[in-house]
Design a protein around this nucleic acid. Structure first.
Length: 466
RNA sequence: GGCGGAGUAGCCAAGUGGUAAGGCAAUGGUUUGCAAAACCGUCAUUCGAGGGUUCGAUUCCCUCCUCCGCCUCCA
């Protein structure tokens, strides 16, 4: 598989550096509230990335952290009257539930920051020892960015600093590279009254770790000095990932991540998501509007990860139809297969182009297009060919993490007895050619939000689509 | 202001130096008591605007316009 690398800005062939297992790290959620679909765009694409590697026969080691101590978790846990641990445990559970609904494979390792305080302290101590960090008077510790020549490579800070330098020089003649410059970032935050109970002892006094350091320490613990790939949303490029590189390379000396995989943001109705605009959707918000998590997943993989995706509620309805079409295609393919044919083919048949798309910079929309095209081309396959095609189709859907059981297509709303009775009466009226009665009952069902689909030998009921 | 990304049909969205995938919606037909569903079709001479290079550009270069992100916490 080939993938664009943020650092070198070129496509790389992905091969495990240890020769056997592709080891990668994803920055996980900060658990202080429900994750929204923008967060999930990142996690879903990371999941497709992993599934594509695995479908292609590569073993993976997927590490994704939980940020369970920072300003927001502390602030909101206090507001909720809970201990930090109670608070973050609750939201972590909620996150896991959402992930499951979206069909995300659980990471092999999911470390939390609070459980790795000793590792973080050890890393800070090493940075101080090597001259890359210094303690301030109040007991905080800062990373000295001037001590790391590579600082800013990932986010092209060179160009930006040229500009910053100019404006700063215009305003003041002070040396921006002086020790203690404002750009140095914090590794250890000294204890403050508003932290409440949430502090830990350290050689520099009581306090808590800085956010950037948490990831570096956990990466060191589970993936070591050098690993295959690091991923997150584009907004993490600077400063988070830039700082991780600085900390880890200075403390551990390895190459850190061989590849950087950043996922573009999700827009809603063409603009940024925000609570104030009321367009920040969680899975629950979507469920309240009658949309399944699988529909959301389909929408989220409907654009290339490198481009911003414009999310709309209409696109969810479109996703429902598209998923239904995929399910129908699979059924038709299955119907062509002779009973004694086994699905053993290793290729992708008519879906080869779709598979190729996925392996070329994780082109998920290209892959979806290829699947529909492949389905159309499958119309006249022989039983054996159809068996091979269906095997390819299934593997492709597994790589994309799409599942098509009926209950996904038709949300498993229980049909109330009264509705069922109404529908039965209508069917009887229809059989009796009592059209007026039949139409009246159909209208009543519609009022109650149910759609009748007549067939030759019966009917089906569906909740009216939104 | 700096840096990065993006502008493709009503909407979502691939792609390519050689003449525009796919999905949704819409629409014509078949079917239907009528609808819906289903099935078969149709649906961008054109890729933000203007120049340039080229036999040929949507794809490369330049200018301009617009949008988004980062520069402070953020997937």
């Amino acid at each position: 598989m080939r993938l664009f690398d943020t650092l070198t800005r070129t496509e790389h062939d992905l091969r495990p550096i240890d020769g056997s297992t592709y080891r990668f790290y994803c920055c996980g959620p900060t658990v202080y509230g429900p994750a929204h679909i923008g967060n999930f765009r990142t996690f879903v694409l990371q999941d497709v990335f992993r599934r594509t590697l695995e479908t292609g026969g590569t073993r993976t080691l997927h590490v994704r952290n939980i940020t369970d101590v920072d300003d927001k978790t502390i602030r909101d846990s206090q507001a909720a009257g809970q201990s930090l641990n109670q608070f973050t445990t609750g939201w972590t559970k909620k996150f896991h539930t959402d992930c499951e609904k979206l069909g995300l494979l659980p990471p092999h390792i999911e470390p939390g920051a609070v459980d790795h305080i000793p590792q973080q302290i050890a890393m800070i101590a090493k940075l101080i020892e090597k001259g890359n960090a210094y303690a301030s008077d109040d007991g905080s510790v800062y990373f000295k960015i001037s001590s790391f020549p590579g600082y800013g490579r990932l986010s092209r800070l060179d160009e930006r600093e040229l500009h910053l330098g100019k404006t700063q020089n215009a305003r003041s003649s002070s040396d921006e590279y002086e020790k203690g410059s404002l750009s140095d970032f914090v590794l250890w935050k000294s204890r403050k009254p508003e932290d409440g109970e949430n502090f830990w002892p350290s050689p520099w006094g009581e306090g808590r770790p800085g956010w950037h350091l948490e990831c570096s320490a956990m990466i060191q613990e589970y993936l070591g000095d050098s690993f295959d790939l690091h991923s997150g949303g584009v907004d993490l490029v600077f400063p988070h990932h830039e700082n991780e590189i600085a900390q880890s390379q200075c403390a551990c000396g390895g190459h850190f991540a061989a590849n950087w995989f950043h996922i573009a943001h999700l827009l809603v109705d063409g603009g940024k998501m925000s609570k104030s605009l009321g367009n920040l959707y969680t899975l629950e918000d979507l469920a309240a509007r009658g949309h399944t998590a699988m529909e959301a997943r389909y929408v989220l993989i409907g654009a290339h990860y490198h481009k911003p995706l414009n999310f709309t509620l209409d696109s969810l309805s479109g996703a429902r139809e598209a998923l239904a079409k995929l399910a129908k295609g699979a059924r038709q393919l299955a119907a062509r297969i002779d009973a004694d044919t086994r699905l053993t083919s290793a290729g992708f048949g008519p879906f080869q182009a779709a598979w190729d798309s996925l392996n070329h910079d994780l082109n998920t929309p290209g892959a979806l297009g290829g699947i529909f095209t492949g389905l159309r081309e499958s119309a006249n396959l022989t039983g054996t060919e159809a068996a091979a095609a269906l095997a390819g189709f299934n593997r492709l859907l597994r790589a994309l993490g799409l599942t098509l059981p009926e209950e996904v297509l038709h949300p498993s709303s229980e049909i109330p007895q009264a509705v069922q009775a109404l529908a039965d009466s209508r069917w009887q009226a229809r059989l009796a050619k009592n059209w007026a009665e039949s139409d009246t009952l159909r209208a009543q069902l519609a009022e109650q939000g149910w759609l009748v689909k007549d067939g030759k030998d019966g009917y089906t009921l569906e909740p009216a689509g939104s």
